[in-house]
Nucleic acid binder design. Structure first.
Length: 642
RNA sequence: GGGCGCGUAGCUCAGGUGGAUAGAGCAUCAGCCUUCUAAGCUGAGGGUCGCUGGUUCGAGUCCAGCCGCGCCUACCA
């Protein structure tokens, strides 16, 4: 709502300035610092001052005089030394809000692919992975809220070194057979992903002490690549089981996917050979005959020596496979996967996985017009290589639409390490944070963290609602815990390193998910109480005429609250443009703050002035809707009570 | 050495394309539960926006140079 008026005002100024002065000016709309200045401020006069060689104030006066009235605007005035402040027609604004369902405008023709999560399927997920998934999933929700068609891919690297190391751990270190591992999977007393977490750390440490054991890795990788024999089968059994565990972990956070493209199919369906042919044909890579890269296929440009894409032994590096995958996402590879169903979500939506067995699934994935890869910032160089690859192949447009949605790592605060009993060196204790390491088994497992959060929330819920059924308490506690976790992971901007602190993450006060949920719960409670008291919801259309709106919204304080609540759409659109889920989180918090304030200052049910009561009830309902909407974009549910 | 990022209140962080008096949470202190849930609300204190220079009507924001910190810079992924 607010956004569309902003656009109208901007357009009106732009058109007038073009006609009057012949200048094509991008007219920005600002939010005045102080609300007394109105709802919008236009600094256009400052920008024109230089070109016109006139005082900003004089130009501003001219503009105000000549533009005249804009729909929805009550007044424009010159302020300071050249600002144009705009006041909205409050009655008209309120009435428009009451009528509109603020439906988003669908953006047709564009299909956006978002790839996120991408956890190596060799051990349980940790908090770093949760940041990736929370960012990716929230961005998907933001895009969908703006009307975009989005496909969510979770890439499974089931043939990589990390899986090989766990396979080697079972095979060589523990002397376990395929049957042994299958039995382990059946054992209800064992959490397989946790077991692998420890085994991976043990195997890595064994490599450290016995470098000759690295031969295990080579042999395992070789066996996996051939796709034949027990070791290859073992790798599949392990990675499939871990993928299942990861999906279950992510489902706790309400994170869902459309398709799981797997590296094994990229291999078996010869995606790389197709990409390799393309790269050679178009001379995007060359065969090096001398120097330290002799015998390799190299992509020039990025670093001084170029980047090796194919090793001298003929095997392709990870980046090469990534180029093939990126080409496929844009529908440029000329090859496709086959698909089979992997899982059905509660709402009936099917999650597909790639397969190399020809099957007519009727599914079509990929063919995006824009691709977001949610990958941590340490892999920027690799992502640059992928983009450079597209460019070298002549796919400039697709390279421009390949977006590395990067984010900083999640590390552990020294205090958190102490809480978890992780020993630290003298040096580490002085650092602001300590990096997590899967190899060392250092980190916080995602499910453990969620369990602690739920337990803590449950204590709180039980003490407040002792009479409620246990199952219900647990559901509410879970919603609160997940809300807290998602908000915590989203409130930092992407390029900020999160120094994870257990005590801070477990907090339910202040700028947190539960604060947002609490506001929505209170709003709902007012509406429930109204019915309990035997009253009925007023017919807002009948009781809130435009005149009534104007009268009631004359109250500066009430008006400001309504205004703040009406900016949800604008906030989400801005956040999408900035690629920053943290902006949505911040807006949600501010919205909740505004409502808490409103709640405190206006006892609604006992309000005696009927017109005012109706307005307050309508606003409560509006706030509730907006809070629920913004929370759902953050992937946060609203409990029935708190 | 090169590339990317960061440096804002005691701590953790926000600060649309440069704009009006630099914000929030936590922590600290002082208030508010016989009134729709106190996971809440009100108020107070707390700042040389790393340093220096430049661009201009105007710089936390843009440019340059320093200082400090982090990540990347593999024929690992």
């Amino acid at each position: 709502m607010f956004h569309s008026i902003e656009k109208q005002v901007s357009r009106a100024f732009h058109t007038h300035i073009q006609i009057r002065y012949g200048i094509d000016l991008a007219v920005g709309i600002e939010q005045p610092r102080q609300s007394e200045f109105g709802e919008m401020a236009v600094p256009a006069a400052f920008q024109l001052a230089k070109q016109l060689r006139q005082a900003p104030r004089k130009i501003a006066a001219e503009l105000v005089e000549e533009i005249g009235l804009i729909a929805g605007v009550a007044a424009m005035e010159v302020a300071g030394n050249g600002y144009i402040n705009i006041r909205l027609d409050r009655g008209a604004y309120g009435t428009a809000l009451r009528r509109s369902d603020s439906a988003s405008v669908p953006v047709p023709g564009e299909k956006i692919i978002v790839e996120h999560t991408n956890i190596n399927p060799n051990k349980a997920a940790h908090i770093g992975h949760l940041r990736n998934a929370a960012l990716g999933d929230t961005f998907v929700r933001m895009l969908r809220a703006c009307g975009y068609r989005v496909e969510v891919q979770n890439y499974i690297d089931n043939t990589g070194v990390q899986v090989a190391d766990v396979v080697a751990g079972f095979h060589y270190l523990e002397n376990k057979t395929l049957a042994d591992v299958r039995a382990l999977l059946e054992d209800p007393a064992i959490r397989f992903d946790y077991y692998c977490w420890d085994l991976y750390a043990r195997t890595s440490s064994y490599y450290n002490d016995h470098p000759e054991a690295l031969a295990w890795r080579r042999e395992t990788l070789h066996a996996m690549e051939s796709g034949e024999g027990d070791v290859a089968e073992l790798a599949h059994v392990i990675s499939d089981a871990i993928v299942k565990a990861h999906l279950a972990t992510m489902l706790r956070l309400d994170v869902e996917y459309d398709v799981l493209p797997r590296e094994s199919e990229i291999l078996h369906l010869q995606f790389w050979s197709a990409a390799f042919e393309l790269l050679k044909q178009r001379k995007a890579i060359y065969f090096e005959t001398e120097g330290k890269h002799a015998g390799c296929w190299v992509m020039p440009g990025l670093s001084e020596e170029g980047k090796v894409i194919v090793r001298s032994d003929g095997t392709v590096v990870y980046t090469g496979k990534d180029i093939a995958y990126q080409l496929w996402k844009f529908g440029l590879l000329g090859k496709d996967f086959f698909y089979r169903p992997w899982y059905t979500y509660a709402d009936g939506r099917v999650l597909w996985v790639t397969t190399d067995q020809p099957a007519d699934s009727g599914q079509q994935f990929g063919h995006g017009t824009r691709v977001y890869n949610v990958i941590d910032t340490r892999q920027s160089y690799l992502q640059d290589v992928v983009e450079a690859g597209l460019r070298a192949l002549g796919y400039e447009a697709q390279a421009d639409q390949s977006i590395h949605f990067n984010y900083e790592m999640v590390a552990l605060s020294p205090r958190c390490c102490a809480d978890l009993g992780i020993p630290l060196s003298e040096e580490d204790r002085k650092r602001p944070y300590v990096e997590v390491s899967g190899r060392k088994g250092l980190g916080v497992k995602a499910d453990d963290l969620m369990d602690s959060l739920i337990a803590k929330a449950l204590e709180e819920v039980a003490s407040r609602h002792a009479e409620a059924p246990a199952g219900e308490q647990r559901r509410v506690a879970t919603q609160i815990a997940i809300g807290a976790l998602r908000y915590f992971l989203l409130k930092f901007t992407r390029n900020s390193v999160i120094a994870f602190d257990l005590q801070e993450a477990l907090s339910f006060e202040g700028e947190t998910g539960p604060y947002v949920q609490y506001a929505a719960v209170r709003a709902q409670k007012i509406l429930d109480k109204l019915i309990e008291r035997g009253e009925t919801m007023p017919d807002f259309a009948a009781e809130l005429s435009s005149e009534a709106m104007t009268r009631q919204l004359a109250s500066e304080e009430v008006w400001q609250m309504l205004l703040a609540a009406s900016k949800t759409g604008a906030a989400v659109e801005r956040a999408v443009a900035a690629g920053e889920p943290a902006h949505v989180a911040r807006y949600a918090f501010q919205l909740a703050q505004t409502f808490s304030n409103f709640y405190q200052q206006h006892p609604i049910l006992i309000e005696e002035n009927r017109e005012k009561k109706v307005l307050l009830l309508w606003m409560t309902e509006f706030f509730r809707r907006q809070l629920e909407r913004i929370a759902s974009i953050l992937g946060i549910q609203i409990p029935i009570y708190m």
